[in-house]
Design a protein around this nucleic acid. Structure first.
Lengths: 362, 362
DNA sequence: AATTAGCACTCAAAGGTTGAGAGTGCCAAC
DNA sequence: GTTGGCACTCTCAACCTTTGAGTGCTAATT
């Protein structure tokens, strides 16, 4: 029972038909549409063998065939031909990207929404954690009860916090603290900021009112968050359009799973062997570790978020997914994002500068 | 056909039964459970009248009765008795609030999630737009190619942006610009920052490299965003647990509606006449303007987000909602939030300070 | 030896029928 | 005014039947 070229053609035809119709595919349909010029009886024989080999499954004896995860895997790895984005599609994506870029808010949430809109699946956007250190502190004295802490991190982001005090503090003190923190708290990781260190600083600065610990607390928080990674999901309702999620139970299971940020972050830790091209990875049904995704598929594309931050966009859908189209789109979006966010080159004039700064909102 | 006290008792019983069971309620059930000591026949007569008066509806002749929106409205306004939160519930809410407060990130998203978790409905968090002006600019010089813009807004938030330049600039220039912007761009609204003004500043500063427009662009963006209002939805999958959203069509319609931020923002503009207590508003079915919410209900509670910013939390659910419980919980959460976020008083020690500063992440 | 026409067989899905049960409305009696 | 009783209505679930798409196998054809 060897894997003839003809079998591959037939398998491909079945999968592509099923992707469109969501209905088990029968021999007659393939005979008619595959263009192989074979009768349904012949197809039937081949289908029986493909089933025996594990590439197809049969919901019940008198139904057509449905691709198995193994079948999809072969299809994704070998069979499917690259979907060429149409000019319109590329323009649509370019347009969306430029819009967002123009609005200057290339945040996770927007990236997710973008991916979802462009693929019509629930989409997710992930940013790998980028453990950072504080490179530089600035305390801006506003008035005797107020100052702003500004911290420039090693990952090229800026964090700030407005501090209102229930007591007065002199400008000189703020200055002093600023220097102190720049000397002692820059370049170190979160776990190095111990209570002992804080005590020492408190004594060194002569601070008796807890100012040091407020600022240190801010530092800890900022560093802590930098290690967290970010994730959002967008377009979840798209799931409900799909026949495989007609069952509210199932839809609920998957949506609940996806609405937990920790679960999303797990996706970024998926193993790499499922790479189907430079930057696209595909996880089919049981290849997902998560129980809840056992009969769903995930397609991920990596992009470069600038400042050597690694980002991921992806979609979640039924195993019956238009892998080719989705992979092509995600890949194109990811590349576009990389370009837009690249540190060095500015696509057009100052736009670049603007995108680069972050932390503008929420 | 007057609206006797007995009718009210019966209506109440029907509604409360229906809220629990989600099934049309029959005369026999009420006769048994209402404790009125009336036979089913009597109840039947009363029910017929309540139906004629428009407070009840009958899915079909031989089914029990279901409350109409008018019925719910009466219930919410007059009939329902205040749900008293149990000690456990209050503790649970307090705990969740203090957790969040401790993590210092009382952002929209977290507030929404909190409300959803505590009510088991999809929840939303809204912040009314707070048009702001910039009170103060600071430019922090990092190196000859880099500086940070920090802006303190009149609504007591701080925004920043890191600017990388493709050319060099002297520290003196940065200083000069800082002064210039503080003099000319503080205290004014977005529309006042015209190209003419930018030109003038450019000439005044001797800037030939577009620095002025970069900073002005930042100012415009910041001011623009401050007028936008924020909204998030959380816990949307909760919808799918409810029998009234068993139909994926319907679930999809509502979820899609809710996942558009603009639709959420519209909710904050709902009229006020539906207030049922100090800070809780209820919109029942057709009282919602949105087509998609015609048979859903919305409960909103306002909270004070500090710095005279107005916030809203709310839930969306079927008209058959446990209004009493939901209203009580939302109200309690909203009060807790107000307290936590109140500018003046610090619940305990420095925690307050920490919460106050914003802009820490995303 | 590979292909195909033909045929008997299988099974899910759709449609129809029936009976049970919950509920109503109305009337006559209390 | 309230209630027991009864005829009536309508949904729902269970069951049956039919239909049709699809299969696997065999025998004939190329």
């Amino acid at each position: 029972m060897k894997f003839s070229d003809r079998k591959k053609r037939i398998l491909t035809a079945i999968i592509e038909n099923y992707i469109e119709s969501a209905e088990p595919v029968g021999s007659k349909t393939i005979s008619r549409t595959s263009g192989l010029g074979l009768s349904s009886a012949t197809i039937r024989n081949e289908m029986a063998e493909l089933t025996a080999m594990g590439y197809l499954e049969q919901p019940h004896t008198s139904a057509g065939r449905v691709p198995s995860p193994k079948g999809y895997r072969l299809y994704v790895n070998e069979l499917m031909r690259k979907y060429k984005l149409s000019l319109e599609e590329m323009q649509a994506i370019n347009y969306s990207l430029s819009q967002k870029a123009h609005q200057l808010d290339m945040l996770m949430g927007n990236i997710g929404r973008l991916a979802s809109q462009l693929t019509n699946y629930p989409a997710l956007a992930l940013a790998a954690p980028t453990p950072a250190t504080i490179q530089r502190f600035d305390l801006i004295y506003i008035d005797s009860n107020t100052f702003i802490i500004v911290a420039l991190l090693s990952n090229n982001t800026v964090k700030n916090k407005l501090i209102h005090l229930p007591f007065s503090v002199e400008q000189g003190m703020v200055q002093k603290l600023s220097t102190l923190f720049n000397v002692n708290l820059t370049g170190i990781t979160e776990d190095k900021i111990t209570n002992i260190l804080i005590d020492t600083l408190e004594r060194a600065s002569g601070d008796t009112m807890g100012l040091v610990s407020v600022i240190a607390g801010f530092a800890i928080e900022v560093l802590h968050k930098s290690q967290a990674g970010e994730a959002v999901i967008a377009g979840a309702p798209n799931l409900l359009r799909l026949p495989e999620f007609r069952d509210p139970e199932k839809a609920h299971r998957v949506m609940s799973y996806l609405s937990d940020i920790n679960h999303l972050l797990e996706l970024s830790e998926l193993k790499n062997e499922n790479r189907i091209s430079d930057n696209v990875k595909v996880y089919i049904g049981p290849e997902n570790i998560a129980e809840e995704l056992q009969d769903s598929s995930v397609v991920l594309a990596g992009y470069n978020a600038g400042d050597n931050m690694q980002g991921l966009i992806g979609v979640v859908g039924p195993t019956r997914m238009d892998y080719s189209r989705v992979a092509a789109k995600l890949s194109y979006i990811a590349e576009g994002l990389s370009l837009l966010l690249a540190s060095g080159e500015a696509p057009r004039g100052f736009d670049k500068l603007m995108i680069k700064g972050d932390d503008i909102d929420e």
